[in-house]
């Protein structure tokens, strides 16, 4: 997963529900020095809370991405993130940075 264009990650999940796996594995996909490069807000819900889990990303170009982790698996999330990150990569390449 290309993480260098992400500036902020906000996630909320109830670990006792199955869809939380996507959020948790996404957090595990971030590199070891991710906290120095981006802002990460994680909220762990209580066991009996019914709030749906979500994952919100912000990119360097200002794009915000809200991902419905109740439906998406980790592979789908990675695909979504990479699709935008690749365009940012291409843009950076064309600018010659």
């Amino acid at each position: 997963m290309i993480t260098k264009h992400i500036t902020e990650v906000t996630t909320r999940f109830n670990p006792f529900k199955k869809p939380s796996k996507t959020c948790r594995v996404f957090l595990a996909h971030l590199p070891a020095n991710a906290r120095t490069m981006m802002k990460i807000n994680t909220t762990v819900l209580t066991r009996d809370s019914q709030e749906p889990s979500f994952l919100k990303l912000k990119f360097k170009d200002g794009k915000e991405m809200q991902l419905d982790t109740e439906k998406l698996k980790i592979n789908d999330v990675v695909e979504e993130v990479d699709r935008h990150s690749r365009t940012l990569n291409r843009k950076a390449d064309l600018e010659g940075n």
Binding site: A32, T42, V44, T46, R47
Partner: peptide, 23 residues
């Protein structure tokens, strides 16, 4: 501090019972 930011409490098992973070 860098390590603790990446450590996330999920729950506990106390004498066979499962507790969430609040518990």
């Amino acid at each position: 501090q860098a390590g603790l930011q990446k450590l996330l409490l999920l729950g506990a098992r106390v004498e066979g019972r499962v507790f969430d973070t609040e518990g």
